[in-house]
Amino acid sequence: MSNITSPKQVAASLTELWSPRVVAEVDDAYIKVAKVHGSLAWHSHENEDELFLILKGHLRIEMEEGAVELKEGEMFVVPKGVRHNPVAEQECHLMLIERKTTLHTGDVVTEKTRSLDEQLRPLERLVNPVD
């Protein structure tokens, strides 16, 4: 029996910014959600691609060759080795699909960097609204 999860609800329930939380795993990948606002950090993931799917809001992913602008429902894959910096001018909720070996801020460590243990912390149980 599998668990049904709403990435949108989980992301909306998060209280910390730039602190991805693992909501599922598929083979060698984690499915994560995050609530973000502001800028994360310029970094790269040398051996892993990173998929961003926007659940709510707008996200700009700055890269040395230019930037992509993503709105709700859109996704983009940052190829392995590409330096990038996610930026949200307003609060944005997103889903990430990354290999289990992917470090949060890749090759750099900042005050926003979260360890895998932090990302794997149990989520607060969501209460479904009564119709």
Rank of each mutant, 00 (worst) to 15 (best):
L17E: 14
E89Q: 09
R83N: 15
L53C: 09
L126N: 04
D49C: 02
A67P: 01
I97H: 09
V127W: 12
R114H: 04
V22D: 12
Y30D: 10
V22M: 12
W42V: 00
E65G: 06
N128E: 07
F52V: 10
E48G: 09
K100Q: 05
V26R: 13
K35A: 03
E89Y: 00
S6T: 03
K35S: 01
M63S: 10
M75V: 14
V78G: 05
T101L: 11
H37F: 08
F76R: 04
W42E: 02
E46H: 11
L40V: 03
L17K: 15
E98N: 08
P79G: 10
L123G: 08
A12E: 10
D131W: 15
N47C: 01
L51H: 00
A12F: 05
N128W: 03
Q119Y: 03
N128S: 12
E72T: 05
A29W: 09
G81L: 08
I97F: 15
E74N: 07
K8Q: 14
E118P: 06
R99D: 02
A41G: 02
Q9M: 09
T101H: 09
S44H: 13
L55I: 01
C92S: 08
A88D: 01
I4N: 07
V36Q: 06
Q119K: 00
L120E: 08
V109M: 12
F76P: 04
H43Q: 03
I31W: 09
D28N: 14
K112E: 00
L94H: 02
V82P: 02
D49Y: 04
D131P: 15
E111F: 11
R121A: 13
E89L: 04
P86N: 14
E118D: 09
F52Q: 10
P7E: 12
L51P: 00
K112G: 04
Y30V: 07
G38H: 02
N85P: 00
W42G: 02
A11W: 11
N128I: 09
N3A: 07
S115N: 00
L120N: 08
R121L: 13
E69R: 01
G66L: 07
R99Q: 10
L17Y: 15
D117T: 15
Q90N: 06
V109S: 15
E50C: 08
V87H: 10
V68S: 00
G73E: 12
H37Y: 04
E111K: 15
E124Y: 04
P7F: 11
R125L: 15
C92Y: 14
L53W: 07
V109R: 15
G38K: 00
E16W: 08
I31H: 12
H45A: 09
D131N: 14
G66F: 04
H84W: 03
K8G: 12
E74Y: 10
N85K: 10
M63Q: 06
A11E: 05
H84M: 11
N128L: 12
D28K: 10
S19I: 02
H93P: 04
K35Q: 02
W18P: 14
H58N: 13
E118I: 00
S19E: 00
T102P: 08
I97P: 11
A41F: 01
G106R: 06
H37A: 07
E91W: 08
L14N: 01
L55A: 01
H58I: 06
R21A: 11
R83S: 13
